[in-house]
Simulated assay, not measured.
Amino acid sequence: MFKRIVLFLATNLAVLVLLSIVMAVFGVNPQSQAGLLVMATIMGFGGSMISLMMSKWVAKRSVGAHVIEQPRNEAEQWLVSTVRRQAEAAGIAMPEVAIYDAPEINAFATGPSRNNSLVAVSTGLLRAMNRDEAEAVLGHEVSHVANGDMVTMALIQGVLNTFVIVLARVVGRVIDGYLSGNREGGPGLGYYAIVFVLDLVFGLFASMIAMWFSRYREFRADAGGARLAGRDKMIAALQRLSQTYGESTLPKTVQAFGISGAVGFGLRKLLMSHPPLEERIQALRSAPVEQARGTVVG
């Protein structure tokens, strides 16, 4: 846990320092309208893009993953050969394959592009799932990569971050000017408190939008897993997860790309990265045979 916290803080500090240097070099003044837009774009997209570029490195060190470079046993050989076969079928370059030590049944995919990715499975998954179920989980993760979900999520997050930064400061100036009566001068002290609150409020709505897309792509990855491994295998894997799933120990940076996520109800459901397993199983069962095979973007 301590190692994950240190990596998280170090990554975010590096992002902030780099973006501050870029803004200083280009003489960006965040108080002007043009400067605000430039600052928001740099801050909004810079953080998400840098996180995307570092995603494999951070993920491997966060979970202590062992990348299989030379299979040491039959299980590792099966993992590598299965991912290779699925990657070829999906039309992507062979991902790195890794195992990480965790008791829960889980797996995740990450990486900066379709041809530079990582697929990792937990030791808990290898112990609890049979080969058919594990094959379906691998197909689900390979489909995340083939569909370009990591890049798409980073772009969506960048757009939302930019929107939040701009809107919070524009609305903050209007409210501050109205409350202080100083509509022509610079921002008052209350401006920064107002912006802080608006960042939280607008950020909450932005998270809801991002998580809506995250839930949508889980259905698509399930369909891709059904195509690569078979619908019955994908349904069986999700049923196994519904019987044994516990709280995920994955770091926040890769939780959204795990095979399953935390369960939420009511308003909390709007902030969940994964739809309920029952809904995912029903979607596979009710889909036409052609659609159930999935659509992996080539």
Score class of each variant (00 low, 15 high):
residue 10 A to Y: 09
residue 12 N to S: 10
residue 14 A to R: 05
residue 15 V to D: 02
residue 16 L to P: 00
residue 18 L to E: 07
residue 20 S to I: 04
residue 25 V to C: 06
residue 25 V to A: 13
residue 26 F to H: 12
residue 27 G to M: 14
residue 28 V to A: 04
residue 30 P to R: 13
residue 32 S to M: 10
residue 32 S to H: 06
residue 33 Q to T: 15
residue 37 L to E: 02
residue 39 M to F: 15
residue 43 M to R: 13
residue 43 M to K: 14
residue 45 F to A: 13
residue 48 S to G: 05
residue 51 S to P: 05
residue 53 M to A: 15
residue 59 A to R: 01
residue 60 K to E: 15
residue 61 R to K: 15
residue 61 R to A: 06
residue 61 R to Q: 12
residue 62 S to L: 11
residue 65 A to W: 11
residue 69 E to F: 09
residue 72 R to Y: 06
residue 75 A to M: 13
residue 77 Q to Y: 03
residue 78 W to P: 00
residue 81 S to H: 13
residue 81 S to M: 09
residue 84 R to L: 12
residue 85 R to V: 05
residue 87 A to R: 10
residue 87 A to H: 04
residue 90 A to G: 06
residue 91 G to L: 07
residue 91 G to Y: 11
residue 97 V to D: 04
residue 97 V to P: 06
residue 99 I to N: 07
residue 99 I to D: 06
residue 100 Y to G: 04
residue 105 I to W: 05
residue 108 F to W: 02
residue 111 G to P: 00
residue 112 P to Q: 09
residue 113 S to G: 10
residue 115 N to I: 08
residue 116 N to G: 07
residue 119 V to A: 02
residue 120 A to P: 00
residue 122 S to P: 07
residue 122 S to M: 03
residue 125 L to S: 07
residue 125 L to M: 15
residue 127 R to P: 04
residue 128 A to M: 08
residue 130 N to E: 03
residue 130 N to G: 12
residue 130 N to P: 03
residue 131 R to P: 03
residue 135 E to C: 09
residue 136 A to M: 11
residue 138 L to Y: 08
residue 141 E to Y: 01
residue 149 D to H: 15
residue 149 D to S: 12
residue 156 I to G: 09
residue 158 G to I: 02
residue 163 F to I: 15
residue 166 V to K: 01
residue 167 L to A: 13
residue 168 A to I: 00
residue 171 V to P: 02
residue 172 G to V: 00
residue 172 G to T: 00
residue 174 V to F: 02
residue 176 D to G: 00
residue 178 Y to L: 15
residue 179 L to Y: 08
residue 181 G to D: 07
residue 184 E to Y: 14
residue 184 E to P: 03
residue 185 G to Q: 14
residue 188 G to T: 03
residue 190 G to Y: 08
residue 191 Y to S: 01
residue 191 Y to G: 00
residue 192 Y to P: 01
residue 193 A to K: 06
residue 195 V to G: 00
residue 198 L to F: 04
residue 202 F to W: 00
residue 202 F to C: 02
residue 203 G to I: 00
residue 204 L to R: 05
residue 209 I to D: 04
residue 211 M to Y: 14
residue 212 W to V: 06
residue 218 E to A: 11
residue 218 E to T: 09
residue 221 A to Q: 01
residue 225 G to E: 05
residue 225 G to S: 10
residue 225 G to H: 03
residue 227 R to S: 05
residue 230 G to V: 13
residue 233 K to L: 06
residue 233 K to R: 15
residue 235 I to C: 02
residue 239 Q to G: 12
residue 240 R to F: 07
residue 245 Y to N: 12
residue 247 E to Y: 11
residue 251 P to K: 13
residue 253 T to R: 09
residue 254 V to D: 00
residue 255 Q to D: 12
residue 256 A to N: 12
residue 258 G to D: 03
residue 258 G to F: 01
residue 262 A to K: 05
residue 263 V to E: 12
residue 265 F to Q: 11
residue 266 G to W: 02
residue 266 G to T: 04
residue 266 G to P: 07
residue 268 R to C: 08
residue 272 M to Y: 08
residue 274 H to W: 10
residue 277 L to D: 00
residue 280 R to L: 03
residue 291 Q to L: 14
residue 292 A to R: 01
residue 292 A to E: 10
residue 294 G to V: 09
residue 294 G to S: 11
residue 295 T to P: 03
residue 298 G to Q: 15
